[in-house]
Simulated assay, not measured.
Amino acid sequence: MPAPKNTFKQALNNGDRLIGCWMSFAEPAVAEIMGTAGFDWLVIDGEHAPNDIRSIRDQLMALAASPSHPVVRVPIGETWIIKMVLDAGAQTVLVPIVESAEQARELVRACRYPPEGTRGVGAAASRATRFGSVGEYVQTADQEICLLVQVENRAGIAALDEILQVEGIDGVFIGPADLSTDMGFQGNSGAPEVRAVIADALARIRAAGKAPGILGTTDEATQAYLEMGAQFLAVGIDVLVLAQNARALSAKWKAKP
């Protein structure tokens, strides 16, 4: 039996637009709820949410029955953590703060088994192989792994064209919050100067045959990114969805005479 088909990667290759959401609670029960919402993809955030490998694994398990595809953002682009999330069953990995083609090439190698890569061959007892029941996993896993890299500062933007030439990168995700801050517009990713850089980056990513992605946390920003051509677009963060709706509900009824 080969590795499961990565439907998210296939959809990106087909040019489909995919709408997603960020998950920052680091709780499998919340992931299970989010998996019923109808998003095409959901990010399990290992960078800024209080996750570890066990909570990442548990959220992958919670989403197993969901049509929403789990994307695991690792905290850092290191081989050891990429190996762990892949063995836990992730097929799509998002790596933050990628600044060079050399770094991107090493990330591709981390996602692949030897001789093309450096991923450790210890999957027989892992969730990725369904505990040894996927007999052809090692032979077929590489082609089903989807690697997304985040370009989110001036160094990454400067190296974007070289990063886009790296074979094995499926998509490039622009991080507006980090990028705007690095450009001197702290907390203002909507600044015209930042929007211009984002629009140019998304266009270059698409022109290079890669999938362009981004996160919008307001309707205005999300619509703007959509019009710029974002293909895999996150439209919210679960913590903010709860917080904003809870505050609005409270204010609505407390204001009643």
Rank of each mutant, 00 (worst) to 15 (best):
K5L: 14
K5A: 13
T7C: 00
F8Q: 10
Q10F: 00
D16T: 02
D16C: 03
L18F: 05
G20V: 00
W22Y: 09
M23L: 10
M23R: 09
M23T: 09
S24H: 13
A26E: 05
P28F: 14
P28G: 11
A29I: 00
E32Q: 14
T36W: 08
D45Y: 05
D45E: 11
D45V: 03
N51Q: 15
I53R: 11
S68E: 10
V72I: 10
R73K: 12
V74Q: 04
P75E: 08
I82H: 07
I82M: 14
V85M: 06
L86V: 07
S100K: 08
A101L: 02
Q103D: 10
R105N: 10
P114F: 09
P114I: 10
P115C: 00
T118W: 03
V121I: 14
A125S: 14
A128E: 11
T129G: 01
F131Q: 12
F131V: 00
Q139Y: 05
A141G: 04
A141F: 11
D142I: 00
D142K: 06
L148W: 13
N153F: 03
E162L: 07
E162V: 09
G168D: 07
I169T: 13
D170P: 03
D182W: 09
F185E: 06
N188M: 08
S189D: 13
E193P: 05
E193S: 04
R195M: 09
A196Y: 03
V197W: 05
I198N: 03
D200S: 13
I205M: 04
R206D: 14
G209D: 05
E220W: 13
E220A: 15
A224V: 00
E227R: 13
M228L: 11
I237Q: 11
D238C: 03
L240W: 09
A243H: 08
Q244S: 11
K252W: 09
W253K: 00
P257M: 00
